[in-house]
Amino acid sequence: MPEELQKDPLTRGQFLYMGAVGTMMGLALTVPPAFFIMDPALKATIFNRSDIPHVWREIGSIFEVPSGEATAFRVTFPQKQTYDSGGPNSRVGSLTETALASWHDGKIPDLVKKRSEGATFSKSEVRTLEKNINVMSNACTHMGCPVRWDSVHHQIVCPCHGGIYTINGMHVGGPPPHGLWRYVFRIREDGIIEVRHKWVQGTPWIV
């Protein structure tokens, strides 16, 4: 039966029509959805748009950073993703992450030892302090697990796959590809550390 019906030849015009209409329908149904899905990825990778606006956030005072140890500070950034439409119900979300701060090699600089909270620093002193402090993300550079200070072995360890970092955040063991991500930070004259949602080595993703 189907063989009998296979008698009408496909004309050149019909073939071209099928091709043209098929291509147009295919494009209309694939290209907009692809861009629709990839919107955030394109904006993040090609236009370097971040969900976190350009803001500085305080994490704490340098007097709270003890000697010989890395301390965790929670910091909350405003986050614009999905809900910041600008309409009447628009709201800006927030993202809380943890910064680890430690003195270089765990040694408190003399100019901090001499003073107590409430003291002010001059611009050159601030520059010295910025050189002597590490402000790092607590997301392991390997798989992003939360790293923590190991007070027994005096190092920063990752609980997931055993990444080990020194107190300065340098990678010493385990699978991580490099040292901890370092926040772009500044120290105010009153000794408060401020960070931006930006890292010296690039984009860690996830945090």
Partner: peptide, 29 residues
């Protein structure tokens, strides 16, 4: 979920244990 945790120890489900172990064997980017 709290990405700012300082003491949570992430562990996968049992059926991804072997993949988790696999990650340890390949250090560096």
């Amino acid at each position: 979920m709290d990405i700012s945790t300082t003491d949570y120890v992430p562990r996968p489900e049992w059926f991804f244990f072997f993949l988790d172990q696999w990650l340890i064997y390949f250090p560096g980017a």
